[in-house]
Computed example of a mutant assay.
Amino acid sequence: MLGQGGGPPWPAPPVTVDLRAPSPAAVRWLPEEECASRVVLADRAARGEFAALQAVLHRLGVPSVRLDAAQADGGRDPLTISLDDGLVTLEGRSFRPTVVWARGPMPRAIPDGYAGSLIGADSWSALVGQLAALAPAGLPGGDRAGRLAQLAGAAAAGVRTPRTIVTTDPRTAEALKGDRLVVKVLDEHFVEAAPGHLVGLLAEVVGREALMRRRPPGFPVIVQEYVEHDLELRVYYLDGDLHAFAVSKPSPDAPWRNPAAVSVRGMPVPPRAAAVVGRLARGWGLTYGAFDLLLTPEDVVFLEVNADGDWRWFETKAGTRALTNAAASMVRTLHVNVLRAAAPPPIGGVLDFLVLGSETW
């Protein structure tokens, strides 16, 4: 029997994230000198991953250009892309992209001084997101499938997933077992309400009785069984290379609301988790992905994969730079292969270690 819905609606108060860039520079070149070919890194500058990645690529001798996707300013020197020869001209410099890595969320709330309209904002977003079509190698690879498609695909591949329903009224989740349920949005957690300000509704673990008393949110949401587990893992897949972090947090939204309560430590990837991640990443054609998994005594439970998943926050919490170094080595290998200058050196891994040094900050 459904409750009367006299309590608050499902979503807890939203969380706001400030992604305004700390610097006005929208394009960063390393090295500054002209280069015929470059890696292209496109993201919101405030997120930090690509700043660290570009610095390591420079140390590895890989030319790159980093674009702040939030600062698409039509008043700058023209940006021109030739589809005939794949040549990109930006700020008066011309180059051919070898590897393009574009990460979301791309800007949507761009003021009139930048784009003038939602169509203009979408056009800049589409350009950044589709730059990979110009390069022989694009990241993250594969399709950015939604959560339902991911869950269905994982289940079809023989991987356990939480029992799930999608509903406009979470109180109809009576078929799901357990006293606790997980409620999350169907699409992206965040929207850009104003330039650089993301507002998000985060996943919650809700007691069944409390959920029955809440009003429906007014839009479709995912409701899942809460899976009791021994360990929560974030596993990063980088073109076959795997890195894992064990995550302990009091609630799903703690990384945003109470980061001090979240514990993160690097660990070897459990073989059964590695098998699941490798199977799904290959099946979905991913070159990069951040997989969220639960380990139970019997199973590996797939929650979701984020093809734009951050890694610097996890690195900082765990006191390592392993992901940034691994991402740089992956991009360099793709870059070298595209240039056809030579196959990746057999001792490339050793050279990378000597150049990059220790994995701790």
Rank of each mutant, 00 (worst) to 15 (best):
Ala133Tyr: 15
Leu134Ile: 02
Ala135Met: 07
Pro136Tyr: 02
Pro136Met: 08
Pro136Leu: 07
Gly138Tyr: 14
Leu139Tyr: 03
Pro140Asn: 02
Pro140Leu: 03
Pro140Gly: 03
Gly141Ala: 15
Gly141Lys: 08
Gly142Thr: 03
Asp143Lys: 13
Asp143Leu: 13
Ala145Gly: 09
Gly146Asp: 12
Gly146Ala: 02
Ala149Met: 07
Ala149Cys: 13
Ala149Asn: 08
Gln150Phe: 03
Gln150Leu: 13
Gln150Met: 14
Leu151Arg: 15
Leu151Ala: 14
Ala152Glu: 12
Gly153Pro: 09
Gly153Arg: 08
Ala154Tyr: 09
Ala154Lys: 01
Ala154Trp: 11
Ala154His: 01
Ala154Asp: 07
Ala154Val: 09
Ala155Glu: 12
Ala155Cys: 11
Ala156Ser: 15
Ala156Leu: 14
Ala156Arg: 15
Ala157Pro: 05
Ala157His: 11
Ala157Thr: 02
Gly158Lys: 06
Val159Arg: 00
Val159Gln: 00
Arg160Ala: 15
Arg160Gly: 04
Thr161His: 03
Thr161Phe: 01
Pro162Trp: 00
Arg163Asn: 05
Thr164Ala: 12
Ile165His: 06
Ile165Gln: 14
Ile165Phe: 13
Ile165Asp: 15
Val166Leu: 11
Val166His: 02
Val166Arg: 14
Thr167Gln: 09
Thr168Phe: 10
Asp169Leu: 02
